[in-house]
Amino acid sequence: MNLTEIHNVPATIPTPLRIQEYGVGIFIGAQTKSALKKKLKKGLVSVNDETATTATMISGGECIRLSAPTEVGPEKKLVFPLKVLFEDDHLAVVHKPAGILVSGNRFKTIANALPQNLRPSPLPDGTRPQPVHRLDYPTTGTLLIGKTSSSIRALNGLFADKRISKEYFAVAIGNMDKEGIIVADVDGKRSESRYEVHHSVASERFSRLNLVAVRPATGRRHQIRRHLSGIGNPILGDKTYGTEGLILNGKGLYLHAHSLTFVHPFTHQEMVVTSELPIRFEKLF
């Protein structure tokens, strides 16, 4: 059978957009730009009952339909309580625990848990809530969520323009300078992280442990983990980039996404949303 999702575009939108730009986050069956593009190429998207292409423009008042084959069966809901740090009709920030993927093909993901933890948006372009960035599987902390299609686009734009500041806390091993800037390529791309040591304690096993605030200027995969390891101060519990003989097993990765700072794209208020340090961090210092 075919599952049809329908979205009515508000009568006026700020700027006409190609459907593959406007449609990001609108449909459960095509939540990303690449997924929507595939549906368009297969002829599964229509605008005002005419088959849409990647060149179709959306200017306001259109009816967009997504048709996709689906199997008959009950919809499974993931029951996984999340701590909500902030929420309004446009967006939310949740605390991501360690040991769960943000999104992907697995059933147990933050993305699948969001509908049971957030209020549905009453706005005309309200959609299934969607994370707009990622945190590693073992990393804890602040995760930004879009609740409307326009919010998802706006937040993606803020990230692309580097107008969202992120601060992490990590526990780094070994002697290190009080502060510094790390500039090193990650996967062939220039990457930069600034760090500042807040506390240090002597350790019989690790020589020294440091509570370090890190502010990445770029957002490469595993950037903070690779940068700190690259200067000889790997993160405690990092089995991938840690030093042999200094791997802490069973306690997880000591990396926490502490805060997000940005201007709300719709209320224009400056937002600073924080997630408290996990107790295991505090116990070390």
Rank of each mutant, 00 (worst) to 15 (best):
N2T: 11
I6C: 03
I6M: 07
T12R: 14
V24H: 04
G25R: 09
F27R: 15
G29T: 09
K33W: 03
A35D: 11
A35T: 10
L44A: 10
S46E: 12
V47I: 15
N48V: 05
D49I: 02
T51N: 06
T51L: 13
T53M: 09
I58E: 09
S59V: 03
I64Y: 03
L66I: 05
S67M: 13
A68I: 08
A68R: 05
T70S: 15
E71H: 06
E71A: 05
G73S: 09
P74Q: 11
E75M: 10
L78V: 02
L82W: 00
L85A: 01
L85P: 01
H90P: 00
H90C: 08
L91G: 00
A92P: 01
A98M: 04
G99Q: 02
L101A: 03
V102H: 10
S103G: 03
N105T: 12
F107L: 12
I110G: 04
A111Y: 02
A111D: 05
A111L: 08
A113T: 03
L114P: 04
L114H: 02
Q116I: 00
R119M: 11
P122S: 12
P124H: 08
T127L: 01
T127A: 11
V132R: 11
V132T: 10
V132W: 13
R134T: 04
I152Y: 15
K162Q: 14
E167D: 14
F169K: 11
V171T: 15
I173N: 06
G174N: 13
N175D: 13
N175W: 07
A184Q: 15
D185M: 14
D185I: 09
V186D: 11
K189P: 01
E192G: 02
V197K: 13
V201N: 09
E204A: 10
R205P: 00
L209A: 14
N210E: 14
L211N: 10
A213W: 04
A213T: 07
V214A: 02
R215K: 13
R220H: 15
R220W: 13
R221T: 15
H222L: 10
H222T: 12
Q223Y: 05
G232N: 09
P234W: 08
I235A: 04
I235M: 03
I247Q: 07
L253K: 05
H256I: 06
H258P: 00
S259R: 12
S259D: 11
P265E: 02
T267P: 02
M271V: 00
T274P: 01
S275Y: 02
E276P: 07
E276C: 03
F281R: 10
F281W: 07
L284Q: 08
